[in-house]
Simulated scan of single mutants.
Amino acid sequence: MKSLGKYFILLGSLFKNRESFKTYFKLTINECVLIGVNSIVIVVIVSTFMGAVTAVQTAYNLVSPLIPNNVIGLIVRDMTVLELAPTIMAIVFAGKVGSNIAGELGTMRITEQIDALEVMGINGASYLILPKILASVFMYPLLVIMAAFLSITGGYLAGIMTNIITEQEYIYGIRLDFNEYTVTFALIKSVVFAFLVSSISAYKGFFTRGGALEVGLASTSAVTNSVIAILLADYLLAQLLL
Rank of each mutant, 00 (worst) to 15 (best):
S3N: 12
G211C: 05
Y203F: 15
A90S: 14
V97S: 01
G36L: 02
N17M: 02
A94C: 04
E169W: 10
G12I: 04
L84C: 15
Q239G: 09
A212L: 08
K132G: 03
V71D: 05
I174F: 07
A158N: 01
E112L: 02
V227E: 06
N179L: 05
A194W: 06
F8E: 12
G173N: 12
M108G: 04
I228E: 09
R77E: 05
V41K: 10
T23C: 06
G159A: 09
A55N: 00
T54L: 15
M50V: 12
V53P: 01
I114N: 00
A94V: 01
A135D: 07
T54M: 15
V119M: 14
E19I: 01
S13Y: 11
V223R: 05
L157V: 15
V46Q: 05
V76E: 00
T111Y: 07
L231P: 09
L213D: 12
Y235Q: 04
L150P: 03
I101L: 15
V92G: 09
K2A: 12
R209E: 13
S3E: 13
G5Y: 12
T220L: 12
I40N: 08
F15H: 05
V81Y: 03
V76T: 02
G98D: 03
G216R: 11
I67H: 10
G159I: 09
I29M: 14
V53W: 06
A222Q: 08
F138M: 14
L196E: 10
M89C: 14
T224S: 11
G73N: 04
G5E: 13
N163M: 12
I152K: 05
V46W: 03
A135K: 12
I35E: 02
F8V: 14
Q239P: 08
A85N: 09
I188M: 08
A55L: 00
I110L: 05
E83W: 14
S198P: 08
E180P: 01
F25R: 14
I101T: 06
V53C: 07
T166M: 13
D115M: 03
V43I: 15
A102N: 08
K26P: 12
S39Q: 08
D177L: 10
P86C: 04
R109C: 02
A55T: 00
Y60D: 11
L10R: 10
S20G: 06
S190G: 14
E169P: 03
L143H: 00
L150E: 10
T54H: 03
A238V: 13
L236S: 07
I145K: 05
P65K: 02
L231G: 08
I114Q: 00
A85E: 07
G12F: 09
N100R: 14
V223Q: 06
L14V: 05
S13T: 13
Y235S: 04
I145T: 11
F195P: 02
N38W: 06
F93H: 09
S198N: 11
F207P: 01
F8P: 12
